[in-house]
């Protein structure tokens, strides 16, 4: 099969690449653009390690075909900090020990950003619901939930 062109914006930058028709957005980001901050844990949308924001909403990039992202605006973990300033969720994860091995962290950060963008004052249950699609095996979620609470309460 011939490769097809993909034109999209990633972290605010215009990208023009060729992708296989069967290639996922995750693979396009990692293998073509070498944005390896987005992780692959299961390849079938269960673990959330590959979470990115597509046109303002979170998506498991392993379940999105790269071609579907044509014309889209995509934010990955590499695009969270702006002008040399970390995003508040990044600061909070560092300050409150909300990461251990760090493999699932990029996905959590994007789920947290999406939650706080749409609901700046979430309850604990709303936070847990928002990150329920992101699996973490190191932390038991406690410090992740607290870090997101801290951002909401501007304690970062």
């Amino acid at each position: 099969m011939a490769k097809i062109p993909l034109v999209f914006k990633v972290n605010g930058e215009q990208q023009e690449i060729l992708v296989q028709p069967y290639q996922t957005l995750l693979s396009a980001l990692r293998d073509e653009l070498r944005l390896t901050g987005t992780k692959e844990g299961c390849s079938n949308g269960n673990c959330g390690a590959c979470t990115v924001i597509v046109n303002g909403r979170t998506a498991d990039s392993c379940l999105v075909l790269a071609a579907e992202a044509n014309g889209a605006e995509v934010t990955t973990v590499e695009g969270l900090s702006q002008n040399g300033q970390l995003h508040p969720v990044q600061k909070a994860f560092m300050k409150y020990g909300a990461l251990q091995c760090g493999f699932c962290t990029p996905g959590f950060l994007l789920s947290a950003k999406y939650l706080l963008d749409s609901n700046p004052n979430p309850t604990e249950h709303e936070i847990r619901l928002a990150i329920a699609g992101n699996l973490c095996r190191c932390t038991g979620y406690d410090k992740i939930v607290r870090a997101i609470q801290a951002v909401a309460q501007a304690e970062v």
């Binding site: 990692r30 944005l35 390896t36 901050g37 987005t38 992780k39 692959e40 990955t76 973990v77 590499e78 969270l80 900090s81 970390l86 990044q90 994860f93 560092m94 020990g97 990461l99 760090g102 493999f103 962290t105 990029p106 950060l109």
Partner: peptide, 16 residues
């Protein structure tokens, strides 16, 4: 955590 920054910015290089 010493290595927290590279982990929240996606720079930490894992095996894959």
């Amino acid at each position: 955590k010493v290595d927290a920054l590279e982990r929240v910015t996606g720079k930490a290089a894992f095996g894959a």
